[in-house]
Simulated assay, not measured.
Amino acid sequence: MTRTLERHLAVPDLLPAEARVADPERYRQNIVHVEPDGSFSIVALVWLPGQQTPVHDHISWCVVGVYEGEEAEIRYRVEDAAGDEVHLADGQMPDPEDGLRLVRIAEVTNPNGSADGFAPPGDLHRVWNAGEGTAISIHVYGADIRELGSSIRRTYDLPER
Rank of each mutant, 00 (worst) to 15 (best):
C62P: 00
Q52W: 00
S60P: 14
I152S: 00
G83S: 12
D37R: 15
D57E: 04
I42R: 02
P54I: 00
V127K: 00
D144P: 09
G142C: 04
E97C: 09
E85W: 04
A72K: 03
R3P: 08
V66Y: 07
R101W: 15
D95K: 03
T4K: 15
D157H: 07
V11T: 06
R161N: 01
V66E: 09
S114P: 12
D13H: 01
V64D: 07
W47S: 02
E73R: 01
L100A: 00
M1V: 13
G113S: 02
E70K: 05
I105Q: 08
D157P: 05
A44K: 15
G65P: 07
E160N: 08
R75D: 10
V140T: 06
E71C: 02
H33P: 09
E25L: 11
A106Q: 12
I105R: 00
I74Y: 04
I138W: 10
P120G: 01
G122H: 09
P24Y: 13
L124C: 02
E97T: 04
E132T: 09
I136P: 15
E132K: 10
S150R: 09
A17G: 05
H125C: 09
P24A: 15
R154M: 03
A81V: 08
H56D: 05
D144W: 05
Y156S: 07
P16D: 02
E147I: 14
L14E: 07
D90R: 13
P111S: 14
H8V: 13
T2H: 01
A19G: 05
E147P: 01
G50W: 00
R161E: 06
D116N: 13
G69H: 01
L102V: 03
P49V: 00
E18Y: 05
Q51F: 12
F118L: 05
F40I: 03
L158P: 15
E147C: 08
R146S: 15
T155K: 07
S137R: 10
A82D: 13
P121G: 13
H8A: 06
D144M: 12
V108P: 07
G69S: 10
E70V: 03
I42Y: 02
E85C: 04
P49W: 10
V108G: 05
W61C: 12
P12L: 11
H139M: 00
A44D: 11
C62S: 03
V43G: 06
T53P: 03
A72G: 02
D116W: 08
N110L: 10
E71K: 00
R26L: 01
I105V: 15
V103W: 09
G149L: 11
A44M: 14
Q52F: 00
P159T: 11
P94L: 03
L5M: 11
D57T: 12
L88N: 10
F118C: 07
I105M: 09
P36W: 08
A119I: 10
R26K: 05
V66W: 08
E25W: 14
V43E: 14
Q29E: 11
M1F: 01
R26P: 03
E35S: 05
L100Q: 03
T155H: 13
P111I: 04
M1G: 13
A22N: 00
R146I: 07
